[in-house]
């Protein structure tokens, strides 16, 4: 068996490396090293991590098609679940840190701050994808319908970038970098579609 086909090994690598940022956040929190504004830091870190994993899921198909790295496909589910995992952590940090656990103040905040609304929509779109990520669900839905549903990934990634762009005060470097990444990954899919039709 070569490393390329050792999907158990890939899974272990992904599992550990994906969890490492969360471990650092918890560890730094425990030793009081999250900086002057821990709530802001954890909110931002988990938000960026959710977006990074969204971008990584979108990267799988182009890498397979362009380089024949088909072994990546087996790991896509876990990458997506990590995006959801950090999305949940992001939401919980917001509820605990920004809202002081006042759940009733969330709807008002969503209406008041458009960037929160965009984030919330993106997050809510992640829920059905996480819920249908099991083999049983794929079988039950059938590959075609499952694939259609999971195209929501595109919207979630776009929503994540827009949400990010709406937050920054003036330095748009990072949201712009994510916008370019997501833009290229979606353009690739568009190009493939156009080639198919033509």
């Amino acid at each position: 068996m070569t490393f390329i086909s050792d999907s158990r090994f890939h899974r272990q690598l992904l599992l550990v490396n994906g969890l490492l940022p969360a471990v650092f956040i918890v560890f730094d929190h425990w030793r009081g090293e999250l900086g002057a504004n821990p709530v802001e830091f954890v909110t931002r870190a988990t938000g960026v991590l959710a977006l990074i994993f969204m971008v990584l899921t979108l990267l799988v198909t182009p890498l397979r098609k362009l380089f024949g790295w088909n072994w990546l496909l087996k790991q896509r589910r876990l990458i997506g679940l990590y995006a959801f995992f950090y999305g949940v952590a992001h939401l919980l940090t917001y509820i605990a840190g920004d809202r002081d656990w006042q759940l009733l103040s969330v709807p008002d905040d969503v209406l008041k701050r458009p960037f929160i609304a965009v984030g919330m929509i993106s997050f809510l779109l992640m829920v059905p994808l996480a819920a249908t990520s099991t083999n049983a669900m794929i079988k039950k839905m059938g590959g075609k319908r499952w694939n259609q549903l999971h195209r929501l990934t595109y919207l979630i990634a776009i929503g994540g970038v827009v949400h990010y762009y709406m937050i920054v005060k003036s330095d748009i470097t990072y949201p712009l970098a994510f916008a370019i990444a997501v833009g290229l990954l979606l353009a690739y899919r568009l190009a493939v579609q156009i080639r198919k039709v033509a």
Binding site: F3, F9, L13, V16, N17, L20, P21, F24
Partner: peptide, 14 residues
């Protein structure tokens, strides 16, 4: 590979 990836992840995070 374990060492390389975890060191890289740690480095990126930090």
């Amino acid at each position: 590979i374990w060492a390389g990836t975890t060191v890289a992840t740690t480095g990126l995070y930090r």
